[in-house]
Amino acid sequence: MKPLFIAATEVSKLFPGLSPKTLANLRSQGRGPRFFKKGRRVFYRVEDLERWLAEGEVKTSGC
């Protein structure tokens, strides 16, 4: 069972290659997936991360 929310520091465990630093840069630019803050900690809904990653899908044409 996948979690509903995940801490920014743990995202790369569920989505290898997506680092906390990359997410922090995207947040500071007003880009990236929707996030939530509780105190100083940043959290993401797993479904929001999945949706955001899927929006960046690149379609390739077959030869």
Rank of each mutant, 00 (worst) to 15 (best):
E55L: 11
I6M: 01
K13D: 07
E55K: 11
S61N: 06
S12E: 14
F15S: 07
T22H: 08
R34Y: 04
R31C: 02
G62T: 13
W52F: 11
I6G: 03
P33C: 07
A24E: 12
L26C: 04
R40F: 07
G39S: 08
N25I: 12
T22E: 10
P16S: 08
F15G: 01
L26R: 11
R34G: 05
E57K: 15
F43A: 01
K38E: 15
A24H: 15
R31N: 07
K37D: 01
F43R: 05
K38Q: 15
R41W: 00
G32Q: 08
T60S: 07
T22L: 10
R41E: 13
N25S: 11
R45Q: 09
Y44D: 00
T60P: 00
F35G: 00
P16D: 09
V58M: 06
S12H: 11
E55T: 09
Y44M: 01
E50I: 14
V58N: 09
T22W: 09
T22Y: 13
K13N: 08
T9S: 15
R34W: 01
S28T: 09
K13A: 10
L23N: 01
G32F: 05
R27D: 06
I6E: 04
K13L: 06
S28A: 12
E50N: 07
E47D: 15
E55W: 03
S12A: 03
R27H: 06
K2D: 15
L14G: 00
T22A: 11
C63F: 02
F35Q: 05
L4F: 09
F5P: 03
E55C: 05
R34I: 00
P33R: 01
L53Q: 05
A24N: 14
R51N: 09
S19H: 09
G39R: 03
K13E: 12
K21F: 02
M1Y: 08
S19W: 04
A54R: 10
I6D: 00
V58F: 03
R31I: 07
A8L: 14
F5M: 14
V42P: 03
R41Q: 14
K2T: 05
P16M: 08
E10Q: 12
L23C: 05
F36N: 09
R27L: 04
A24P: 04
T9L: 15
K2E: 11
P33H: 02
K13M: 05
A8H: 00
L23I: 04
D48F: 03
T60A: 00
